[in-house]
């Protein structure tokens, strides 16, 4: 299909397009280097691993979109906790699947409520509130899950590793989730309120939006998604480990920024989260393929984040 001029122009104005272009370029370089070998496998792997980043990235995106200063640092601890708790409850059998799922969601709900209560009651910046709560949550996870390597229930393990025509089942589900959250963001009262608060908290209040209720819901949403990620990750990697959430703190923030969501708030970008997650994974794959060492991979990742944020600029002054 050939896009007509104006349509193409409009496509290029979408902030998420760059992350997909980047993904494409990185993939092409990798594939050309391997002379076409494993081109499809790379995509499959990228979809598999990006899925988890997308789940937490979506939650982080909602939080960041509610305006400057809002951020959720408790995501890794939350992943560790829900992974440990649910694996123990399900105890490797399918019988407790539903209970385990509900418990995971319960963890997320509690962490979200706790985060917001700290922000609200102690009147402290979200970064400190979620940081403090992450200490507690992580400790709980460590104490509860030490020495524990329970295999996930067969159904969960199968579900998270299932392939449908070379596409991971879980990725399809999370594409659906992203689509659903995109609708929530643009077509529901809640989503519109999030966008409004992020642009101008005062104006939002004066336009009749209950700002605090929306912020509460957003921290809870982020908590729920982190717990979901913990559950899926435990299923995927054959059991929960306590440090499995670690990399998702930086990753969740990075995909939000690279995906074209405004760090100043008020503009969110769901497709960009997928694009950025794929990009981040494929970038590492490319550097691997090119023979770059782990150190170079990390440096490149960092520099790209800084380059993207510098290009996007600070937009508006913080009040």
């Amino acid at each position: 299909m050939i896009l007509k001029g104006p349509a193409l122009e409009r496509l290029f104005k979408k902030p998420w397009i760059w992350s997909y272009l980047g993904t494409l370029i990185v993939w092409l370089i990798t594939v050309s280097f391997t002379k076409g070998q494993g081109a499809g496998d790379i995509i499959t792997a990228a979809l598999s691993f990006a899925t988890f980043t997308v789940i937490v990235g979506l939650g982080q995106m909602f939080v960041i979109t509610t305006g400057p200063g809002n951020i959720d640092l408790s995501i890794p601890a939350n992943i560790a906790l829900s992974g440990a708790v649910t694996m123990k409850i399900m105890d490797g059998t399918n019988d407790m699947l539903v209970v385990g799922f509900l418990v995971a969601m319960g963890c997320g709900l509690l962490v979200g409520i706790f985060n917001y209560s700290l922000i609200r009651i102690l009147k402290i910046p979200p970064i400190i509130a979620t940081l403090s709560s992450s200490f507690l949550v992580l400790s709980t996870a460590i104490a509860y899950g030490r020495g524990l390597k329970v295999k996930p229930p067969p159904f969960l393990a199968d579900f998270t590793t299932e392939m449908v025509y070379g596409v991971p089942m879980l990725a399809l589900v999370v594409i659906g989730l992203a689509f659903g959250l995109s609708v929530v963001l643009h077509r529901t009262l809640y989503g519109r309120s999030v966008l409004a608060i992020g642009q101008n908290m005062r104006a939002a209040r004066l336009a009749g939006i209950n700002v605090e209720r929306i912020r509460f819901a957003t921290y809870v949403l982020s908590g729920l998604l982190a717990s979901l990620c913990g559950l899926a990750l435990a299923g995927f990697s054959g059991g929960a480990s306590l440090n499995m959430g670690e990399e998702y703190l930086l990753a969740s923030i990075a995909v939000v920024v690279i995906g074209g969501t405004s760090v100043a708030g008020g503009r969110a970008n769901v497709p960009g989260i997928w694009g950025a997650s794929l990009f981040m994974f494929l970038l590492v794959t490319m550097l691997n393929t090119l023979g770059a060492s782990g150190g170079v991979r990390l440096i490149m990742t960092g520099l790209i984040i800084i380059a993207v944020i510098t290009a996007a600029g600070g937009e508006k002054q913080q009040h």
Partner: peptide, 11 residues
Amino acid sequence: LGMSFVWMGLS
């Protein structure tokens, strides 16, 4: 956050 990757990579 970006710099933390860079420092880590250099290390």
